[in-house]
């Protein structure tokens, strides 16, 4: 089984690195987006501290706040685009059927792809971190290993959710908009680009329902010393719960939708 999963991941990696320029741009692009945040943060700062921002969050380091958000946010887009949308692309190009004709359980294709997605996204994030350190002098001010530990259940939960989402995307004729909008909304409402405490009440409720919000929040609390929404222990419990629930429900939802596709015959063209 492991061999099969590795083969699936390997195939995706080969295609990803087939055009090395793309791989490089995956790192250059986030830096491009982050640069304005760096100068914006500076513009609001007095003696290196953005005081208004500090009042909301407990840290005056605006840039680092945004940087961590966009790193974690990268995994959200990876789930929506890399798991959901790319399955749909395989369907449209016709290879989904040849994959699903093999004896490999159909969920395994998603798990294999998750491996690639994790590797590629983590490589990207490492590149962006490195560049931020070189260009903007970023450095973590807290226990990095603890922060990584708390992201693990969040990522597992996200990918579990991705399985259900991939199923949903298979049912749609044109999935581009759905993927784009939901990826954006989940990212923003998890606090990718701003502290969720600034949100108006109605939106904040949605934001606080998303378990990812607590993941973003905990990582920032650990590394930047922001005021956490929940005590770290509680956040960890929430994220582990999210992981278990999503891995089980996501897998089940995907299998159910796969059965629907088999009945409707919507996997290929006709």
């Amino acid at each position: 089984m492991i061999d099969t999963l590795l083969a699936i991941a390997r195939k995706d990696l080969i295609m990803f690195f087939r055009y090395p320029i793309n791989a490089v741009f995956r790192i250059v692009e986030p830096i491009m987006w982050l640069t304005p945040a760096f100068f914006l943060g500076r513009g609001f700062s007095v003696d290196g501290t953005a005081t208004g921002f500090a009042a909301y969050t407990g840290t005056g380091d605006f840039f680092s706040f945004i940087l961590l958000g966009s790193l974690l946010g990268a995994y959200i887009s990876a789930v929506f685009w890399g798991i959901g949308y790319s399955l749909k692309m395989e369907m449209d190009s016709g290879v989904l059927e040849s994959n699903w004709m093999t004896p490999v359980p159909r969920l395994a294709f998603l798990v294999g792809r998750t491996l690639t997605s994790l590797v590629v996204t983590t490589l990207n994030c490492t590149g962006v971190l490195l560049a931020s350190w070189l260009l903007f002098g970023f450095s973590a001010g807290g226990p990095v290993s603890k922060a990584m530990l708390i992201t693990l259940p969040m990522l597992a939960g996200l990918y579990g959710f991705g399985f259900a989402f991939a199923g949903l995307v298979l049912l749609m004729r044109d999935a581009n908009t759905l993927v784009d909008v939901s990826s954006f909304l989940v990212g923003e409402l998890s606090g990718r680009g701003f502290p969720v405490t600034v949100l108006p009440r109605a939106l904040m409720v949605i934001s606080l329902v998303l378990p990812t919000t607590y993941g973003f929040d905990a990582v920032r609390a650990l590394l930047l010393g922001t005021k956490p929404l929940l005590p770290l222990g509680v956040a960890a419990v929430v994220l582990v719960g999210f992981m278990v629930a999503m891995l089980v429900l996501g897998g089940m939802a995907f299998s159910a939708i796969e059965r629907v596709c088999r009945a409707r015959g919507t996997l290929g063209m006709h």
């Binding site: 080969i14 016709g94 040849s98």
Partner: peptide
Amino acid sequence: LTGERSVYWKLTGRENLRYYAAL
């Protein structure tokens, strides 16, 4: 099924077969 479209165009012939052999 639809022969032409049932393999990965961005892989070589051999890579395709290696992938499916693993499956």
